[in-house]
Amino acid sequence: MGIVTPGFQGRPRSGAPNLPPGQYLTPDFPVLSAGPTPKVPRETWEFVISTETGMEYRWSWDEMMALPQETPTVDIHCVTRWSKLGTTWQGVSLDALLDGIDTAADYALAHSYGDYSTNLPLDDLRDGQAWLVHTYDGDDLPAEHGGPARLLVPHLYFWKSAKWVRGIRLMVEDNPGFWETAGYHDYGDPWREQRYQGD
């Protein structure tokens, strides 16, 4: 009588090789939100980067749109376990926004219209890893998905890609954001399955 012995395989993995552990593929684009959807007219929209010395750098909608535009196609991974592959966006690289800003900060706190915030190491916003995006799949980014503009940091769980982003505070010390103060991981690497504190 044969006995099937699957052997030690480590953590259970999802079926597809390009999915991080514990994720499943969805063709949909689920809407997740911790509160009401803010209505932000482009006429009054602004994006502000503030430094640890109190310097502020502001962009109006038109000024942001005049910056070089990129069209990243990336996979996104939500901590609630859905992943969506090959999503196409348009926006401005954070490298372009951070270019010329003098800072000694190691950390960033993205904050949004509404009361959302999320923290990341500043290095994770550099080197072509993060964008301020205003277009999804060829259309204006819908408000329920964070329009008029959201952060896109696809190498981390999607709660780091703050919807309705209004600005980024550059900080010398790490300050946890909305979900990070309620049990979620400070960094949130989906490939290391860093969902909760201590993972």
């Binding site: 997740l32 911790a34 979620y184």
Partner: peptide, 27 residues
């Protein structure tokens, strides 16, 4: 608001957050 990584309960008057609950498998 339950379509989120945790439950977020807001004041019905001012919509500020009153309570948040995050459930991990073991915590």
């Amino acid at each position: 608001y339950s379509h989120a990584p945790g439950l977020v309960a807001r004041c019905p008057v001012c919509t500020e957050v009153i309570l948040r609950l995050v459930r991990a498998p073991d915590r």
